[in-house]
Simulated scan of single mutants.
Amino acid sequence: MDFMTALEVSASGLNAQRIRMNIAAMNLANIHTTRTKSGGPYRRKSVIFEAVPVHNPFDRVLQASMLMPGYSRQGSLFSESPTGVHVVDIVNDNRAFKKIFEPSHPDADKDGYVMLPNINVIEEMVNMLMASRSYEANITAFQATKNMILKAIEIIK
């Protein structure tokens, strides 16, 4: 794996974890939202990730030339291509809403119950902590790659 590919893998992880953190923050911000534009309480959202191969333009040209007639596919550089992460979708959680008795609330039904979002504070805090740690790990990998690039430039001088 070259330096640019390593940086792209780390960058994809940084972007994915930033989105994950934003969704967790949005969920926490709407923990008491009982009315949305679509009607009903806010629905908790989740992020779905997918591993995607990371190739730079040079890799594609090299791979195309290696697959030309006369070249063997054995020992290809691309048998284990590096993968990054990509956010596929942000989906609504279909768990049941919380029902609490609060007859004075403007959104209470005729029996005095209010439907609250299906958000668990502990679950969201764990998601935020995991996103934060993953983000830090990707920054560390990015910095290590950057330091290797700088050392390689020093060697060339």
Rank of each mutant, 00 (worst) to 15 (best):
V87P: 01
V88I: 15
V88G: 14
I90V: 11
I90T: 06
V91H: 08
V91A: 13
V91Y: 08
N92G: 11
D93R: 03
D93G: 04
N94A: 12
N94M: 15
R95N: 11
A96V: 14
A96T: 13
A96N: 15
F97H: 08
F97T: 09
K98G: 03
K98V: 12
K98C: 04
K98H: 10
K99D: 10
I100Y: 07
I100N: 06
F101T: 08
F101P: 04
E102W: 11
S104F: 11
S104L: 13
H105V: 04
H105W: 02
D107S: 13
A108M: 03
D109A: 03
D109F: 00
D109Y: 02
K110V: 11
K110Y: 10
D111G: 08
G112N: 06
Y113M: 08
Y113D: 02
V114Y: 05
M115R: 11
M115C: 05
L116R: 06
L116H: 04
P117M: 02
P117W: 02
P117N: 02
P117C: 02
P117K: 01
P117V: 01
P117S: 03
N118G: 06
N118L: 01
N118I: 04
N118W: 04
I119C: 07
N120Q: 12
V121N: 09
I122V: 14
I122K: 07
I122Q: 10
E123W: 06
E123L: 11
E123G: 15
E124V: 03
M125N: 13
V126K: 07
V126E: 08
V126T: 12
N127I: 00
N127F: 01
M128S: 09
M128F: 05
M128R: 07
M128V: 08
L129D: 09
L129R: 10
L129P: 09
L129A: 13
L129N: 09
M130H: 07
M130A: 13
M130P: 03
A131W: 05
S132A: 11
S132I: 07
R133P: 00
R133S: 00
R133Q: 05
R133F: 01
S134A: 12
S134I: 03
A137N: 05
A137W: 02
N138W: 01
I139L: 13
T140A: 15
T140E: 09
A141F: 02
Q143R: 10
Q143H: 04
A144T: 12
A144N: 13
T145Y: 02
K146M: 08
K146G: 11
K146E: 08
N147F: 06
M148A: 07
M148Y: 02
I149E: 00
I149V: 10
I149D: 01
L150W: 11
L150F: 11
L150R: 15
L150A: 14
K151N: 14
K151Q: 14
K151I: 15
A152P: 03
